[in-house]
Amino acid sequence: MRHKDNIVVAEHAEGRIQPVTYEAVTFAKKVADATGGKVSVAVMGRPVRPFAEEIAAETGCDVYAMDSEAATVYNAEVYRSLLKKSFESITPRFVFIPHTATGWDYAPALAVDLSASGIAAVIGFREDSGPIFTRRICNGKILEDLRPLEDRPAVITLMPGVEKPHSRKAEKPGEVKIYEMEARAPRAKTLRYVEAPSASVNLQEAEVIVAAGRGVGDPEHLDAIGELAKLFERGALGASRPLCDMRWLPFDCQVGMTGQDVSPKLYIACGISGAVQHTMGMRNSGLIIAVNMDKNALFHQTAHYCVAADLHKFIPALIEKIRELKSR
């Protein structure tokens, strides 16, 4: 790695490079095109070679692979110590890390370790006498443009789904360099992983999902939404995370990054604000309809059709119209 390089730190889980890694490479290449420097990828693990070769072939980027027993599975302290060690001689300009349960676990501390800038959950970049990164605040109703501090590296976490992962293999694979490294013995240790219990509510097989969000206001209003879901032969009731947290609906109903990933033919979102944590789990649905009083709700950007109406009036009206159509 040379000075001013842009480094993407790869994320892997269950023996696979996660697609967010390739999204981050796409983003890093855009930054490099505008500001100079090249893009390299750092990957840590054991065995690390298969990961490194896959990344080099997919992206064409040079891969800096750190082979370390301690990094067999992700560990924040191990990742931090390996990255810090590797950045001792050559300081990267930007370190791009996916904003995931793994990324946000170590990236902020890495920024402290490196006395670097730290900008989290970035959704965009532009060049304007220097790099500017954009992020959302206030449920996406306001954007912030931020600059990293000068004369030091910046650790940037990238919101998943902002860029497309590299879809085509690179013409020429990047160079793979493997370094055997010792990491600092971590204090917090992974004991095991627990796989997601199979959901009793099968949202995967549903053709239609009617999903409820905080905007429903009161648990008793869920009845109408459930009734709407039942009108469809293969309809199911879904939910955004806050509803499950409040125990209004079981966690089995949860759609989104921390819940189920669904792609029904029809997705009707009722009173869901549209946080990325939710939309990442349903954006591949066939037809997406958002019902939300708030005309500026972020969800309207994901939806194909939007209805800015009072749910408690619109849902009963919709139920009636569907019944009318069915009885014809």
Partner: peptide, 15 residues
């Protein structure tokens, strides 16, 4: 227990 994506969890011993 920390929550990962898609309902997966990691069990960690934190001193």
């Amino acid at each position: 227990e920390r929550e990962l994506e898609r309902g997966r969890r990691e069990v960690v011993e934190l001193p």
